[in-house]
């Protein structure tokens, strides 16, 4: 285990050094990403400005959700880049080499590539959470801050799990993987608003199949003292982010099933 952590950190450090060679690209990509999320936010702001609130949630509260889900996604994107790019590896038959090495395949794919330098989404997300946390009267305590951090990390686990599942699909087919964007980018878009906005089937899907509700809507509801699911005991709302970690564990198990189905290709 210690060995695995050591190896992972080495992978990360190498990736970091390589990316530092392209400074201009770092600035441009980050700026482009900042603008891309920025215009999405402008849309949310304009709607709240015109309609006042959505399902009773006001601007600061929506901004908190928006910021948290974007931090989660940015973290998953930085660390899960190897899984995101995995289809190219399968197409070229390069996965064979990883199978020969005496380390877990998930660890090696995770260490394949990181994306530390696109900080636009992360910066905007952090800025929003800080602004929302300051402007809302939450009464911040150590426990509430821990819940905020836990929910954000839980969200990162969910998106990381989705990247792993997307990569696992490659063992069966490398075509039409864009359909997974509906879950990753679509999930980000959906979790920017309280789940009460959506129809029941959609809410259930993003709670029980892809557990984004457990890492955003429920814990944020607990933070803000808002009713979410009346039947749910308060203690469970505080534990909800653990569902994100569980989803990641399940995704890794599915990955291992996928690896067993791998048949090499390429020449």
């Amino acid at each position: 285990m210690r060995d695995a952590v050591h190896l992972y950190l080495r992978f990360a450090a190498t990736s970091m050094r390589a990316q530092m060679q392209y400074r201009a690209s770092f600035v441009l990509f980050s700026l482009a990403q900042f603008l891309g999320i920025g215009v999405e936010f402008l849309g949310v702001w304009a709607l709240v400005d015109r309609f006042g609130a959505v399902r009773g949630w006001r601007l600061g509260e929506v901004v908190l959700l928006f910021g948290m889900v974007n931090i989660s996604f940015a973290l998953a994107e930085s660390f899960g880049r190897g899984f995101d790019m995995f289809s190219a590896m399968v197409k070229k038959g390069e996965f064979d080499r990883l199978l020969l090495r005496p380390r877990s395949t998930a660890l090696q794919v995770a260490g394949l590539e990181f994306q530390f330098l696109r900080v636009g989404r992360l910066a905007l997300g952090v800025g929003m959470v800080v602004w929302a946390a300051a402007s809302l009267r939450v009464g911040w305590s150590a426990a509430r801050l821990a819940l905020l951090a836990g929910a954000t990390l839980g969200g990162a686990c969910v998106f990381y799990g989705l990247f792993i599942l997307q990569a696992t699909l490659c063992f069966w087919s490398v075509e039409s993987l864009e359909i997974m964007n509906a879950l990753t980018y679509g999930g980000t878009e959906a979790a920017q608003y309280p789940l009460s906005v959506y129809r029941p089937w959609f809410r259930r899907f993003f709670t029980f199949v892809v557990p984004l509700g457990f890492v955003s809507y429920l814990p944020v509801g607990a933070l803000l003292g808002r009713a979410t699911v009346p039947a749910l005991p308060e203690a469970l709302r505080w534990c909800a982010p653990l569902a994100g970690a569980a989803f990641l564990v399940v995704s890794l198990a599915v990955w291992r099933i996928g690896v067993r189905h791998y048949r090499s290709t390429g020449s």
Binding site: L47, R50, V54, V197, Y198, F202
Partner: peptide, 13 residues
């Protein structure tokens, strides 16, 4: 669905 939820509210301009 998002726009539908905004329209369902009563307030605003």
């Amino acid at each position: 669905m998002i726009l539908g939820a905004f329209y369902a509210g009563q307030g605003g301009g």
